[in-house]
């Protein structure tokens, strides 16, 4: 079975965010870029399903600037078979991104399309279910684990207070969260092989954004905290402060 995985190039989670002079972007100086962590789970899931089936190809797709080819190569090094770079701008309008991806994926012969549950930059948690809705395919979000049973997939979905077990008919869209699919490290052999794997590049068809990013701001600094004391003797004073000053008890 062929599987398509959508991945995004995002800043490393270690990044200390600084706002650039334009006030609407981050200062990219010194920022390291990675495959968004949840997307790595999705790639891992796809590789395992392909290998268990013993047939099919895993295609990774990204919408982004030319530099995002680097993240496609990382996924190829993990073991994906081919990659596609849709060159264009992915901004704050997730539906515009979803449309561009849906237009592409529509033509893929892939009964399973995987996304990360959310991208590590915009944290929007929306592109996967939007693509599914546009393609009129069923979708299960926040899947930590799933197995394929012929024409359906049984998914374990994380919700407040427990796990929902959901059966979904293929073709389907799943968004993957942390769970059973701990991503493998690319081997040296994988990295070498990735250089020879096909990486296609074409212009993306992204509709105009209908969300204007007016400003990017740092979170308000937290008021200076204080060390109440050392050791267990400080507990009583802490409880008093929580009650009388912070008023949370």
């Amino acid at each position: 079975m062929n599987i398509t995985v959508c991945i995004k190039r995002t800043p490393d989670t270690e990044t200390r965010v600084r706002i650039a002079e334009d006030g609407v972007s981050i200062d990219s100086g010194g920022v390291k870029y990675i495959v968004s962590p949840y997307d790595e789970f999705a790639v891992e899931a796809a590789l395992r399903m392909r290998d268990a089936a013993g047939e099919g190809a895993v295609t990774v797709v990204t919408l982004g600037e030319a530099s995002a080819a680097e993240q496609l190569r990382s996924a190829l090094a993990m073991g994906a078979d081919k990659a596609l770079l849709l060159e264009g701008q992915a901004g704050m309008d997730g539906l515009a991104t979803a449309r561009a991806l849906a237009t592409e994926i529509q033509g893929h012969d892939a009964p399973l399309v995987l996304f990360g549950v959310k991208a590590a930059d915009d944290d929007a948690q929306q592109v996967g279910p939007m693509v599914a809705t546009l393609l009129e395919r069923p979708c299960v979000t926040a899947v930590g684990e799933f197995e394929l049973n012929g024409t359906t997939a049984r998914c374990h979905r994380e919700v407040e207070g427990g796990t929902e077990v959901v059966d979904v008919d293929l073709p389907a869209v799943l968004t993957i969260t942390k769970g059973a699919f701990e991503p493998r490290y690319a081997s040296l052999k994988g990295i070498m092989a990735a250089k020879r794997k096909p990486l296609e590049q074409k212009a993306a068809d992204v509709p105009a954004s209908r969300v204007t990013l007016e400003a990017l701001e740092l979170p308000p600094a937290r008021p200076d905290g204080r060390i109440v004391g050392e050791g267990p003797e400080a507990a009583a004073e802490l409880v008093r402060l929580l009650r009388e000053e912070a008023k949370v008890l």
């Binding site: 905290g225 204080r226 109440v228 050392e230 409880v239």
Partner: peptide, 23 residues
């Protein structure tokens, strides 16, 4: 401690039970 409003420096195995008692 850089984001905490209130901090206690100490061994949690001593601090937490006391904190529980106080609460």
């Amino acid at each position: 401690f850089g984001v905490a409003d209130y901090g206690i420096v100490g061994d949690l195995f001593e601090v937490v039970p006391r904190l529980t008692d106080e609460v």
